[in-house]
């Protein structure tokens, strides 16, 4: 290399090694905000939320990398955020939309799909609460069970009131169908997502007639047997609803049905409900 070339190289920043190293250090970038925000949501250290349609109108659904964490009314985003802060406490930000797979499975579940697997983030909840919610998940669309049924099924037959409290604290209503749990006297009972009226709406959207339910329970028709199969069910069990009108045999108590030679349905397990009702 000639002297003149040396001089000219040194005078050109890009050709000078030190300047080049400095220039490389200057290639640092600021990450778009989505990098940190997305990482925190995916690791479950923050939550995102979006609006989804439901039979009750638009609902707010919060989620993170572990699953759906909160479902609430969407009528007022501010009070939604407040309730989330009070009960969950993690940072929350509105997202433009839900991850497609999660949105699809929530929509499928709201449409009644039972086999849809939806990850749920139930961190910080008691094992009892989780047991109640998981049991409620087993109740098929269009059917209801008494609070006492849940209590008996999870092995705490006397904890009917605690079951009611746990259901009232259900962080993911509609996905965990606490609306399908009613009082053993047949009245619809309370509902966290907008009160009894909303509960009626959602049950009706699943093909049940809430008035009819209450009338039947009050007039003592708490169990329904089939004269042909000699199987007795809870009235909303899909097996009971298939019984042709001439073969329907209502019972006021499970004891009466068993005495008449009926056996309990293995799917709706009316004994669980009867136990707690007693």
């Amino acid at each position: 290399m000639t002297t003149s070339q040396h001089a000219r190289s040194a005078a050109t920043p890009a050709a000078d090694e030190e300047a080049l190293v400095r220039a490389l250090a200057g290639l640092s970038l600021t990450a778009p905000a989505t990098v940190a925000a997305g990482a925190l949501v995916r690791t479950g250290l923050a939550d995102a939320w979006a609006e989804l349609p439901s039979p009750l109108g638009p609902i707010a659904v919060a989620w993170n990398g572990r699953g759906i964490s909160w479902i609430d009314r969407a009528d007022d985003p501010e009070s939604f955020a407040e309730r989330f802060a009070a009960r969950v406490g993690r940072p929350l930000a509105r997202a433009s939309g839900m991850p497609e797979r999660l949105a699809r499975s929530v929509a499928a579940r709201l449409a009644g799909g039972r086999r849809v697997r939806i990850p749920l983030d139930l961190r910080g909840r008691t094992p009892f609460e989780v047991a109640v919610w998981m049991k409620a998940l087993e109740i098929p669309r269009g059917e209801v069970r008494p609070y006492g049924w849940i209590a008996a099924e999870i092995g705490h037959p006397r904890a009917v009131r605690a079951v009611g409290t746990a259901l009232a604290h259900n962080p993911v209503p509609l996905v965990v169908p606490c609306h399908r749990v009613v009082r053993s006297d047949g009245s619809i009972g309370q509902y966290s997502l907008g009160g009894p009226a909303a509960k009626r709406t959602i049950l009706a959207s699943e093909g049940l007639d809430p008035d009819e339910l209450e009338v039947a329970a009050r007039s003592g028709r708490r169990f329904l047997g089939s004269a042909t199969t000699k199987i007795v069910c809870l009235p909303t069990c899909h097996n009971a609803r298939r019984i042709a009108a001439p073969h329907r045999r209502p019972f006021g108590s499970l004891g009466a049905a068993l005495a008449a030679g009926y056996r309990a349905c293995r799917e709706c397990r009316p004994a669980s409900g009867a136990l707690a009702a007693a």
Binding site: S28, T30, A31, P32, V35, A36, L40
Partner: peptide, 10 residues
């Protein structure tokens, strides 16, 4: 995340 997101992105 705060301290390292930028360099990982870079």
């Amino acid at each position: 995340v705060e301290a390292h997101a930028g360099r990982l992105y870079t």
